[in-house]
């Protein structure tokens, strides 16, 4: 029987010759969630995904999909998984529809026209169905890869940079589609360098660097725990600034418009609390703006180790 854990990676190590690309990584995916694997180029994201789809064998450790070891029963784990590779591929001889028909057939679904039509439509590929891959633009090729990954209705979807090279509009419609797939109960692991999009979409994220999993957690909680809020107080001309341990910068605004105090407070801290601590004359404050920390700040914080 399958269990309820779409992915469970335990003590995974992956070496390429003398290079350790993944170093003792363990994590799991919860059923029905979107999990983002983030990290700089060369962090080991693709290497982890490659072991999930058996393109690479683990050097040590275990990789399970719904409780099935990918090295022991690869046919079972492959049939449960849809995979969008990072690299675009070409398919010399066949057109878009033929490619999807073959791909579906490899999973044992030989007459799958309805599903193929649905995906072509959802991924805005219907009008390109009779084109050869080399006639498609980069973004269309990327969407074809996504259609291929979904053609057999997998329970687990692995997206390695699914939006690289896709324009803004299609990117947001793609993410909407991914959120919808989640709504249908699919579990999704993705990598992306669009951190803001990951922040909006991912229930949890893991941050990789140099093959090591540095941090993992709920997106919101990670941001809260790892970032600060920056409060900018614009003071009227003539007002004096106040000393406070959170004050990080004071600058004069041009043309005698007054001064700006920038204070940094922990993400949990409230602005009202800060203001009452500062105990300033409210009449002296012209404006207040708050810049919230985001996932990008959290990521930078983890990667820079500050």
């Amino acid at each position: 029987m399958l269990n309820d854990t779409p992915i469970r990676i335990s003590s995974l190590v992956k070496d390429y010759g003398s290079l350790r690309a993944v170093s003792d990584v363990s994590f799991h995916l919860e059923r029905g969630e979107i999990f983002g694997l983030l990290g700089p180029n060369g962090a080991g994201k693709t290497s982890i995904i490659s072991t999930l789809v058996t393109l690479e064998a683990p050097t040590s450790g275990t990789v399970e999909i719904f409780g099935v070891d990918v090295t022991k029963n690869p046919k079972v784990t492959k049939s449960l998984t849809g995979f969008v590779p990072q690299e675009l591929i070409h398919h010399g001889y066949f057109d878009v529809r033929e490619i999807l028909e073959f791909h579906s057939g490899y999973f044992g679904r030989r007459r799958n026209g309805d599903r193929i039509d649905y995906l072509l439509d959802r991924l805005s590929l219907a009008e390109h169905a009779h084109k050869k891959v080399k006639q498609l633009s980069g973004g269309m090729k990327r969407r074809l890869l996504i259609a291929k990954a979904l053609v057999h209705e997998p329970k687990l979807l692995l997206l390695d940079e699914p939006t690289a090279g896709v324009d803004i509009e299609l990117r947001s419609s793609l993410w909407k589609f991914v959120a919808e797939l989640k709504g249908e109960g699919m579990s999704i692991l993705l990598t992306t360098h669009y951190i803001q999009e990951a922040e909006e979409l991912c229930d949890r994220v893991g941050i990789l660097q140099g093959g090591q999993l540095k941090t993992i957690g709920r997106t919101r909680e990670l941001i809260k725990g790892l970032t600060t809020r920056e409060v900018a107080l614009t003071l009227k001309p003539g007002a004096s600034t106040i000393e406070h341990r959170c004050l990080i910068k004071v600058r004069d605004l041009p043309e005698g418009q007054g001064r700006e105090m920038i204070l940094r407070i922990p993400a949990q801290r409230e602005v009202g609390e800060l203001l009452s601590e500062l105990n300033m004359d409210i009449a002296m404050i012209k404006d207040i703006s708050v810049r919230e920390g985001n996932l990008e700040d959290a990521l930078r914080r983890v990667l820079e180790g500050v």
Binding site: T54, T81, I89
Partner: peptide, 10 residues
């Protein structure tokens, strides 16, 4: 590049 497809299908 589509030879790799044979590795990820059952």
């Amino acid at each position: 590049g589509d030879l790799e497809d044979l590795r990820v299908v059952p």
